[in-house]
């Protein structure tokens, strides 16, 4: 697989990887912070657990958004000049996957606004 193809695959699946990173980090952080009794600790005036969840969500959200924008550009590029039908397909699939990932990341970050940290 050439470098260009690897980049295409990473771009197409990137949003889902961002979701996986967010998921692993927010679950890992919550478990560690609650498990070590840091439920009441604060950072920048908010609880350290919601802080960890929100900051992770924000970073991965931005990453997924950037991937979505790049996917859109790629999609337009291949729509106009397809060197192969696989290019156009990959870029279109990338737009869909990165779009869905954006929603999934947002959805997973919502509990931080609703639930107490370690109850």
């Amino acid at each position: 697989m050439t470098g260009r193809r690897t980049a295409q695959v990473l771009l197409a699946l990137g949003g889902m990887f961002a979701w996986a990173v967010q998921f692993a980090l927010i679950y890992g952080a919550t478990s560690t912070l609650c498990g070590r009794g840091w439920a009441d600790a604060t950072l920048l005036a908010i609880g350290v657990v919601p802080f960890a969840i929100l900051s992770t969500t924000l970073v991965t959200l931005v990453a997924a958004a950037i991937l979505l924008i790049v996917s859109f550009r790629e999609e337009r590029r291949w729509r106009d000049q397809p060197s192969s039908t696989a290019d156009a397909f990959l870029s279109q699939t990338g737009v869909l996957i990165n779009g869905l990932s954006l929603i999934a990341i947002l959805w997973n970050g919502v509990p931080a606004f609703i639930l107490p940290a370690c109850a």
Binding site: F23, I26, Y27, T30, S31, C34, V49, I53, I103, A104, W107, N108, V110, P111, A112, I114, L115, P116, A117, C118, A119
Partner: peptide, 16 residues
């Protein structure tokens, strides 16, 4: 008996 916050991540993914 895991924290409710942790459960909610999996709840969210289960509906997603």
């Amino acid at each position: 008996g895991l924290p409710k916050m942790s459960l909610s991540f999996f709840s969210a993914a289960s509906t997603a």
